[in-house]
Design a protein around this nucleic acid. Structure first.
Lengths: 212, 212
DNA sequence: GTGCGATGTATCGGTCCGATACATCGTGGC
DNA sequence: GCCACGATGTATCGGACCGATACATCGCAC
């Protein structure tokens, strides 16, 4: 998952580790509370060894050429390679069971603007399926095994069930939106690259319910 | 986290690995989709090495004494020791940052019926604090950095924000309930003819010492 | 001039997951 | 009669990720 996220972010701009982590937190903040250096740096080294990213020189060209009086242990800026972009495209398009788990789905979703619509639909429907199954499991639990469990455990299940129902509804909305031909690759800054088959308004956007 | 859950479950009855996993899934189904044997069995061995659980003989005494014609690779039933109960009490009472994360909170909550009220309140309030901070982070993101992010990422944040608001409201309710001396809001009629020794969900309970 | 928080790179031990292997048991279909 | 198949059951391996920790530089407030 980290691999996919790093490759995706480096497609927007070259970055060094610290920056990458902040962007990761900004983009995935809704689904992951933290990204550890203990997984980030090893992953970067792995990606570099695979040839998917490379170190970029950081000399801004305008800077005076200060030679290494201090050994200048500076930041290491990474940029994605052509093979890296290919790898990203492959990872983003291939779906499996792990694509529908909480983290996997979140990461894939965060890069939907670089995903073609067919894949987006496949992922949204797979996720819906997964959540529906989880929902049914919780319903069974609350029905059949209720008397075996204490009130707190029951309340936890009830809350989980509600979250499932809510997410299914959210997914329905997103799926309907994709099908109806909206669902844009949003024209953000000029950094092109993603698949692009239409324009027009964002996902559900303003179709909010309640919230006084 | 697994350690805590295993110790908690074995306090209700001795169990073997397979059974333990099913009970774990039943109790934690709302917060964990799966429990892997790859973590369960090593943890069991660790707990046994620490003296917190032991293997129990499984011979039902009524069975005919069939000697090992087949090597009888049977199930291994574990039961908790006195030290294990002590360990559980210590783990359940001690709160730290990891107590307020998604998994940690869920596991602690699932064993609230074995937790004294002061600790329950401490955990609920710590969790609320954590979620409130996550919520503020997402709000900032949606406010300040909105134009840097594409529509899908934004939608993900929005959905995450809503989930945070929802959970905070849920926690408020639970906290109010704890303070007022009631059990969690259970929609079902009580009357659970508890098969277990420890079927007192309601609040005024203190930590108990069962097993005469 | 010095303490301190942000920036920045890096490793280590440990937890947990997913895949895999393998063996037993009961049941229903042929 | 028998056998395929799914449930039960124990177990290991490699890999992903986390949390703690270490250390070094920079700007700035006091």
């Amino acid at each position: 998952m980290l691999e996919l996220a790093i490759l995706g972010l480096l497609q927007e701009a070259p970055m060094h580790g610290y920056e990458l982590r902040k962007e990761l937190l900004a983009k995935l903040g809704a689904i992951r509370a933290a990204i550890s250096y203990g997984s980030l740096y090893p992953t970067l080294r792995r990606l570099q060894a695979a040839g998917w990213i490379t170190e970029a020189d950081e000399t801004p060209a305008t800077a005076e050429e200060v030679p290494a009086l201090t050994s200048r242990r500076g930041r290491v800026v990474y940029e994605i390679t052509a093979e890296g972009k290919e790898r990203f495209a492959q990872l983003i398009a291939q779906t499996g069971p792990e694509t529908y788990g909480d983290t996997g789905f979140g990461v894939h979703f965060a890069f939907f603007s670089r995903t073609d619509r067919a894949t987006r639909l496949r992922i949204l429907e797979g996720r819906r399926r997964t959540i529906e199954e989880r929902r049914e499991g919780l319903r069974d639990m609350l029905g059949r095994a209720a008397e075996r469990l204490d009130a707190y455990t029951l309340e936890l299940q009830r809350h989980g069930l509600e979250a499932c129902e809510r997410e299914v509804r959210w997914l329905e909305e997103l799926i309907a939106n994709e099908r109806s031909g909206r669902a844009p690759t949003v024209p953000n800054d000029g950094t092109a690259g993603g698949p692009r088959e239409d324009n027009s308004p964002p996902p559900p956007g303003e179709t909010r319910t309640e919230r006084p």
